[in-house]
């Protein structure tokens, strides 16, 4: 049994301590805003936040979340609406397939939290470990900058 906060609510997951956080969040807790891309910490598709810091949930044991606060993509929404950052991604139409986008947005949110006025170079550097195969990079950069204007 594992207790933690998920997007502001207390949750309990019936999963062993060494279960993979990604699968606990997607399969047990029905979260859609994180994806399995590699399972190797190489792509960032599975990024979520624990206590405000981005982690790769594919290589994080569920026990790391115990007693902490986990945020997934849907947890960024404000009153059921897209957050400013999410809306900027929608306004820029910053997706092709969109599979990488949840990790991109989580990572971008963490960047904005520590640096509310990032430069383009800051955005590129912060997102460098997140891979996109469709080539949506330039729009993603624009979306992050738009959200911080």
């Amino acid at each position: 049994m594992l207790n933690f906060q998920l997007n502001g609510h207390d949750v309990t997951a019936d999963a062993p301590d060494d279960a993979t956080l990604l699968w606990v969040l997607t399969d047990d807790l029905k979260q859609h805003g994180l994806k399995f891309g590699c399972g190797l910490s190489q792509c960032g598709a599975c990024d979520v936040m624990i206590d405000g810091e981005v982690v790769r949930s594919c290589q994080t044991k569920a026990s790391s979340a115990g007693g902490r606060s986990v945020t997934t993509l849907s947890g960024l929404m404000e009153n059921g609406k897209a957050s400013k950052l999410q809306q900027a991604f929608i306004d820029e139409q910053a997706a092709q397939c969109g599979y990488c986008l949840s990790g991109m947005i989580m990572t971008a949110q963490a960047l904005i939290d520590r640096n509310p006025k990032p430069t383009e170079a800051d955005v590129r550097a912060a997102l460098n470990g997140n891979l996109c195969r469709c080539g949506t990079h330039t729009r993603i950069i624009r979306a992050v900058l738009r959200a911080t204007e």
Binding site: G44, I50, V54, V55, Q59, S64, A125, N128, G129
Partner: peptide, 22 residues
């Protein structure tokens, strides 16, 4: 904390594992 890539190192960076490891 991971490594943010230097601007000329292009594809070299590393994710942060702080919250994943006790």
């Amino acid at each position: 904390q991971g490594i943010e890539p230097p601007q000329n190192a292009l594809d070299h960076s590393m994710p942060a594992f702080g919250r994943s490891l006790s």
